[in-house]
């Protein structure tokens, strides 16, 4: 299959602004790895554009960023892109990474039973801590980096040719590395308070479907 990446990057509130910015690192990696990239930033993360571009470009890998729920992934301004009742056919035959809350709970298994090769996502809300004064430059936010660098590892590992399970493992290892660093170093008390959320994200990230697919 052609190496095509489709990435959704809504950008309309603080969390999506952070995901929007941190996903740029994944896009950069995709360029370096020779992927053809279909980027749906801001208002282009809508259902019509999403469905149209999936059908037209046949991406092997779809990376969702944005808000979600157990059975839904949304785009810009909360518009539903895929749900357990809508557009599931668009995921068939593809590897999915959904960086959105809780979508691995119902949408993930449903997508696999509908033919998606693999679905990596979170079974609970994806939680991260951010520094509001860095909101105009999210990539310089070192607190948010503790969370978003590890989750970026899922996508980056897939782009580098690792299997879906290996990509998920590498991301979990990156979370674990940050946890250990905060536990063992002389980190500030306030930094170590982030541990509970790093652990939460690491624990609730799952890889569904074919673990060996690349």
């Amino acid at each position: 299959m052609t190496k095509n990446l489709l990435i959704t990057r809504p950008n309309y509130d603080l969390p999506t602004t952070y995901l929007f910015s941190w996903s740029k690192l994944v896009i950069k990696c995709a360029y370096q790895k020779g992927f053809r990239i279909v980027d749906l930033p801001n208002g282009k993360s809508n259902e019509t554009d999403f469905a149209g571009r999936v059908n037209k470009t046949d991406p092997s890998f779809i990376f969702f960023n944005g808000h979600g729920s157990k059975s839904v992934v949304t785009g810009h301004n909360g518009e539903v892109l895929v749900s357990d009742k809508k557009n599931l056919d668009l995921l068939r035959g593809r590897v999915i990474f959904s960086r959105s809350c809780s979508s691995a709970m119902k949408l993930g298994p449903k997508s696999i039973s509908s033919g998606a090769k693999a679905f990596i996502g979170y079974k609970e809300p994806f939680i991260f801590i951010l520094e509001p004064e860095k909101s105009s430059h999210p990539l310089s936010d070192k607190t948010a980096a503790l969370f978003l660098e590890p989750s970026n590892q899922v996508a980056i590992s897939l782009l580098k040719g690792h299997s879906s399970l290996e990509a998920s493992k590498r991301a979990k290892n990156a979370f674990a590395k940050n946890i250990k660093k905060l536990l063992t170093s002389e980190s500030k008390k306030e930094d170590s308070a982030t541990l509970r959320y790093l652990f939460w994200d690491m624990k609730h990230q799952v890889c569904l479907g074919d673990a060996t697919v690349i």
Partner: peptide, 19 residues
């Protein structure tokens, strides 16, 4: 009591629930 140990001046983003 445990939440009181969270850093002041930072926000906790909890998906669609908000920050």
């Amino acid at each position: 009591e445990r939440l009181k140990t969270l850093p002041s001046g930072k926000q906790i983003s909890i998906g669609g629930e908000g920050s």
